[in-house]
Design a protein around this nucleic acid. Sequence first.
DNA 1: AATGAATGAGAATTCATTCAT
DNA 2: CATGAATGAATTCTCATTCAT
Lengths: 214, 214, 214, 214
Amino acid sequence: MAEKREKPAPKSRSRDGGDKRERILRAAIKVFAKHGFYATRVSEIAKEAGVADGTIYLYFKNKDDVLISIFDDRIRKLIELLERLTSEAKTTEERLRSIIEVQLGLFEGERELAEVVTVNLRQSSKLLKQYASPLFNEYLGLIARVIAEGQAEGTVRDDLSPRLLARAMWGGLDGIALNWTLGGGGPEKLRIAAKQYAEFYWSGIVARAAENTH
Amino acid sequence: MAEKREKPAPKSRSRDGGDKRERILRAAIKVFAKHGFYATRVSEIAKEAGVADGTIYLYFKNKDDVLISIFDDRIRKLIELLERLTSEAKTTEERLRSIIEVQLGLFEGERELAEVVTVNLRQSSKLLKQYASPLFNEYLGLIARVIAEGQAEGTVRDDLSPRLLARAMWGGLDGIALNWTLGGGGPEKLRIAAKQYAEFYWSGIVARAAENTH
Amino acid sequence: MAEKREKPAPKSRSRDGGDKRERILRAAIKVFAKHGFYATRVSEIAKEAGVADGTIYLYFKNKDDVLISIFDDRIRKLIELLERLTSEAKTTEERLRSIIEVQLGLFEGERELAEVVTVNLRQSSKLLKQYASPLFNEYLGLIARVIAEGQAEGTVRDDLSPRLLARAMWGGLDGIALNWTLGGGGPEKLRIAAKQYAEFYWSGIVARAAENTH
Amino acid sequence: MAEKREKPAPKSRSRDGGDKRERILRAAIKVFAKHGFYATRVSEIAKEAGVADGTIYLYFKNKDDVLISIFDDRIRKLIELLERLTSEAKTTEERLRSIIEVQLGLFEGERELAEVVTVNLRQSSKLLKQYASPLFNEYLGLIARVIAEGQAEGTVRDDLSPRLLARAMWGGLDGIALNWTLGGGGPEKLRIAAKQYAEFYWSGIVARAAENTH
DNA sequence: AATGAATGAGAATTCATTCAT
DNA sequence: CATGAATGAATTCTCATTCAT
């Protein structure tokens, strides 16, 4: 228990040009994507990052923490980006399209990152719990809030739980990203998929006049 | 390398009730689902199965082989079950609802299969790429086929890729199942979620007369 | 916390003649005595015992547990032996002489054991706590009881705490053993020391008629 | 090997209050007492002393050297103190009481030093044999000398070896101190114990007119 | 066929020590 | 003199797999 999260992180940029923490994360993404989390040796990350094995432990609690940090860092970026975009967008539909584009767009040109996030993240039960981390929940909450607002203004059907719809969106996009990762199509495929998914998703939740879907 | 697949498999069903191979597989599903593939010790499987550690190696080449065998045996059964259900159902909508219920493990006795699909699928990248992927594609293909048939008969809109919609469904359900697993609500929660998801999904793909979703 | 003490100990004597647990303990005494607890590698113990590294962990929880077990095993022997001897002895004086002889006598011909018990035992704080272990207290209690009985029957002065006198005896004998260990005299030296110590000890605690020690 | 003893010791007492070497030693006593020599990290000493890790190495060759220095510095002080006290005391009995009080009393205001002396002394067999032993012998010799003088003047029975009696005293007091350390009673407990032990000890060695202890 | 004690390769992590600043 | 980030050798312990019984 009593996990002291967040390593103090030696005030970076001391001897070398780039931020060491960042270098390690980038190296980890590379090797995790290649061999998977469990098959990756800490020494491989160190080698790829050009640091000593022990240095990793100056910036991360342990190997798990490296993977978690990759996830957290990206989710953090997603959240920041989305908070800006959703406040700029005029309508609920636009907001949701933004979210979809951004979540998939983050992976464009970073297939390795996509693989780590979609595949490796579930390889440890510890990480699985992290999956329900505050940060991840914040992200889901952000989506759910947009949906709830849509329901309030009457543009989104209100017989479905916003949380469930948020989860469904995350899962759907995650599945698409996984498939793209395994499949090996170009970035354009991902962009097309994003468009179609947005189409499908909006149709699924939009409020309709007098209609019975059954 | 030099993989000599298929163990001789001691002429099953000797004197104990179910044959041992089956008992081991069942035990493995149970513990894999609980702790994940990597965190599961071979000795745990043995204990759960009520056999000695060494016995596992009479039926399986190694630990990996146990997981692979689960996919070979079980997912195939899951696919068969789905094929039967989808052929029995009258309409596309009913077929899709069946799939949703099956994947979420709502058919009694099939919960373990659901867990294998949602939890274990991503646990070994090697596996994912080598063995699981083809099978997984078969599973996705089955969903896609149902959707394509819907498009052919005009009940499903035809401007969206069936494959993409299949992936979206799988991902969405996977997310919901994972959330449910971590959250700890009762089975009724899952059933409600299934209903809502089906509602949402069908709305998202159903063909509509003269309508513009934009 | 929740330390599950006592390893199940694979029902010994399977493949080899001698009890493996015993062999490991004997080997550990040897190498601990030579290099000290911390400087001793687990692999050295294994090598000396002629077993694989991992085998150690079938019989002991960890390296600490090996040292603790040495201590516990010997104290247990001491207690058993002493309980017999003290019930056989006629007088309190004889009982105390027995204790002294036995505690030092246990080391006769086992200089290495003496070194481990007197020197190495304090090398780990975990062990230090063990020092206040039930077993050790039982041993001290046994000595204290003999003294208290002497006080009750009037042969031992009753203005001194039996516990303190017990501790003083243990410490004194431990100190003598340590010195003998470091010094390097023969076993006869230890026997002479035992006799003199008994002499001194008894004089220190015997009840005297009308006398003032001040 | 190739031990270059004695670090240059930066010209002490620069601008900060006490000189740094002393601060480090004091800090080391504190943490050694708490965790033991091996479990203490150099960085902990540094932190406690309020200096950087590297600074330790400006004043001491290595971690071992810190422990050795504690003994060199402190035990020497203990010996000096005892030499003064024993020359001031009038009778042998008083001298021995002084020693007992000092050995236990020294610790009264310096429980931590007590722990280092009693507990840590045995933590490094290398240390014990190399450095501590000569000094320790000097300390024992001091006690033995007092006893021998008592024997010469006829106040102490002369059928017991002064060295043995010295060892017995040290061991007995060490045991009492250890017990007190682990037990956690107040300083008064220690003072009472000292009194009782002195009582017992003197009774054990005092020369008696025509008496037979058997 | 079944067992489970024994194996030993393998890997994460720690921490004393160094040295560029 | 002082710092503390970086190093990387060193070590415990785990656990898949084997094989004598």
